[in-house]
Computed example of a mutant assay.
Amino acid sequence: MRRGPNYLAGVGVFVWLCLVGLPIYVMLGATVQSRAQYTAGGPLSLPGGFSLTNYVQDFGNGFGRYFLNTVIVTVSVVAIVLVLVPPLAFSIVRGRRRSTARVFRVFLLGLAIPAQAVIVPMFYVISKAGLYDNLIGVILPTAAFCLPVCALILTGSMRDITTDLFEAMAIDGAGTRRVFFQLVVPLSKSGLSTIVVFSSLQAWNGFLFPLVLTQSENTKVLTLGLYNFQTQYAINIPGLLAAVVLSTLPVLLVYLFARRALVQGLMGVGGK
């Protein structure tokens, strides 16, 4: 049986595309216009020309420094997560002691503690440690709040590895280190990709810790930089939107290259 075209579904898809595409068009179109053109034509007008002046001005007003600081924080947080979480998840999955499960439950209590609830004692600890207004003082708390979720995700991924593979490695005479690097890590790529994307997004979009734990211009990250741009460019909307576009490009690239592994990891597919 042949079905006729579903016009209602087509109309719904068109409306959805308009709702999604219109804000993107407004943002991208404004970034290639001057402030005078944008003010005269409005947000929905067609660009009268193509200019990268707004992007150049953003870098001239400190955007490059904010971008570099954010990259440093993000790479450091991801590195800490990749160093600590895989061995932790492996010990939880293959551990035979009851204390391991109890420690894991206590560790997961971090999921129930919001960052807003501990920001005051966190500020005190960072200040006493001499890390206030330092990128390290932002990196460590951000990584700490990423660890519980990343451990939970990677533990679920490693549990999908069948016991037969571990037994085969044991019969082959493989030790714990060899099992970890030659079996567990290769079969947990989707989980590893998921925690990399999650921790990088948390670090890239972090606002509370940089706001409270930094002060000078040399340690500000993109989220604070955009806040300053909003104050500085309260009238120059194209300059502000150009900074928004530049700040979202790395996140978009990470999602495009890791979206399949991210979905599989969140669904618990793991090594299958």
Rank of each mutant, 00 (worst) to 15 (best):
R105M: 11
S157T: 09
I153S: 08
I113M: 13
V77S: 03
L152P: 09
S127E: 01
I113G: 04
M158T: 02
Y66L: 05
A143L: 02
P114A: 12
C150K: 15
L131I: 00
L84P: 08
L84S: 13
R94N: 06
A101R: 15
R102Q: 11
F67G: 05
Y124T: 13
V77P: 03
A129L: 14
G110W: 03
N134Y: 01
A168E: 13
A151S: 15
R97S: 15
N134R: 12
F67W: 02
S91Q: 14
N134M: 10
A112M: 14
L131Y: 04
E167S: 14
S157L: 10
P148W: 15
A144P: 11
Y124F: 14
V93K: 11
T74E: 06
A89I: 10
C150D: 09
M122W: 05
I153G: 09
F166V: 14
L135W: 07
S99H: 05
T74H: 10
L108I: 13
F104N: 14
S99N: 01
A115F: 03
L84Q: 06
V78P: 07
G156H: 11
V118P: 08
P86A: 06
V93M: 03
A117N: 08
F90A: 12
V138L: 12
T70G: 04
K128F: 04
V71S: 01
F145D: 01
T142V: 12
A115K: 01
C150F: 05
L109A: 14
R94I: 02
F145W: 10
T142N: 00
I136G: 00
R94W: 06
V118F: 03
A129F: 07
I92D: 13
P87M: 06
V78C: 00
T155Q: 01
C146F: 02
T155C: 12
L84E: 13
R105I: 13
L82W: 09
V83E: 14
L84H: 06
N134G: 00
V120I: 15
R102P: 02
I161E: 03
I92E: 15
A101E: 11
F123R: 15
R97W: 04
R94M: 08
P121A: 04
N134C: 02
G137H: 04
R102H: 02
I80P: 00
R102K: 06
A168W: 10
A143G: 06
L131A: 11
T74F: 05
L108T: 14
F90R: 09
R97C: 09
V81P: 01
G95M: 04
P114G: 03
L111P: 08
V83N: 14
K128I: 12
L140G: 01
A143P: 00
N134I: 11
A79D: 10
S91F: 11
Y66G: 05
V106P: 04
I153Y: 03
M122E: 10
L152Y: 14
C150R: 09
V118W: 01
F67A: 00
P121V: 08
Y66S: 06
L147G: 09
S76V: 01
F107H: 12
V81G: 04
